[in-house]
């Protein structure tokens, strides 16, 4: 039973959903926000099941009747899914969805649509969804799944009930990666990275992540001590290792963890992503103010955002490194 599994993992969320179904107080639109691996997709499906399931008890679906099975297999005509087409959800997709909703339900009753990675919606797609979200012609429920609700249009955010999923526990994930044969150092890093980025690297990831980790440490110390060298390292090593956009995104994440660690050192606490680099972290933490760390983190986050906007990888990294040097 998936529902019971989910109740263990996401107790708050699942209780909330269960109560809503049981008391028939479902909102017309939800935003499910949570990290990769927080299993929000499954929760959304389960909620759809409990709406349609004929044998639901106390808001829990039976997960074995025809309705439940059809939803789980994506075969229910009144439960629709929207996935990004390429990098983003296009306006045409939203329009196609709306067109589908101009028809009455195939089997009468509520219609449900799940939008995966809703944050990738283009502005025009978001805007055309908006009206429809607010004034559907028939009883409908929308579930927008996203990793970052702030990327959604504010007008959409304000029209949906936001449900935040707890991130999976770091310690459980670290333990999992160690079981897979990772060294403790890289397991810690892997556990911090979102699930999906790792999906493709399952096999080579071990070597790759260890090297990436070393590069981050090298780059940071060069930014600090030998500013002239940093740009060279970027060109010779960094961009060779983090080749495409996805890989670079992971690289930026690793970089971000370093600054987070710095902050933890200053605040004396927390778990460290680079526990074996304590010496370096401590010495750097002494020479940098909290504001500077925050500014650096902001630079990295900005870079991550620009990466999505198709900025040239090399230019992006060079700008970031220069910013980091100025900031430190």
């Amino acid at each position: 039973m998936k529902w019971t599994e989910m109740e263990v993992e996401q107790p708050t969320v699942m209780t909330m959903l269960r109560q809503a179904v049981k008391k028939d107080r479902l909102s017309h639109a939800y935003i499910f926000e949570g990290m990769h691996g927080s299993r929000k997709e499954e929760a959304a499906l389960l909620m759809a099941q409990s709406i349609f399931c004929a044998r639901q008890t106390e808001g829990r679906p039976c997960e074995s009747c025809v309705e439940c099975k059809r939803i789980a297999h994506g075969n229910h005509p009144d439960v629709m899914f929207l996935h990004p087409d390429g990098d983003s959800i296009k306006k045409a997709q939203v329009e196609a969805l709306q067109k589908e909703f101009t028809y009455k339900g195939m089997e009468a009753g509520t219609k449900v649509y799940l939008v995966h990675q809703a944050d990738t919606m283009t502005a025009s797609a978001g805007n055309s969804l908006l009206k429809f979200l607010e004034e559907p012609a028939s009883p409908t429920m929308a579930v927008l799944l996203t990793e970052n609700a702030h990327f959604l249009l504010p007008t959409i955010q304000s029209r949906a009930q936001r449900i935040s999923f707890a991130p999976p526990l770091l310690s459980t994930r670290t333990a999992y990666f160690q079981e897979q044969g990772m060294s403790p150092a890289s397991a810690g890093l892997l556990a911090r990275l979102p699930d999906e980025t790792l999906a493709n690297y399952e096999e080579e990831s071990k070597e790759w992540i260890v090297q990436g980790r070393a590069l981050v440490i090298q780059l940071i110390s060069e930014v600090q001590q030998r500013p002239q060298q940093a740009l060279l390292t970027l060109q010779e090593k960094w961009l060779v290792h983090f080749k495409d956009r996805k890989e670079l995104d992971i690289g930026l994440d690793l970089l971000l963890f370093w600054y987070r660690d710095l902050l933890s050192v200053q605040k004396a606490g927390g778990e460290f992503a680079y526990p074996d680099q304590m010496q370096k972290l401590e010495s750097q933490a002494l020479s940098i103010t909290e504001q500077e760390i925050a500014a650096s983190m902001q630079f990295i986050l900005d870079a991550k955002r620009r990466l999505r906007a198709n900025v040239n990888n090399q230019l992006l990294m060079e700008q970031l490194v220069l910013h980091l040097q100025e900031g430190s």
Partner: peptide, 20 residues
């Protein structure tokens, strides 16, 4: 409620109705 049926001999044609 939600569909219309045209019934021929040995053939049924269903169409969904438009909402609104």
């Amino acid at each position: 409620e939600s569909q219309v049926l045209f019934k021929f001999e040995n053939l049924l044609f269903f169409s969904r109705l438009l909402d609104g």
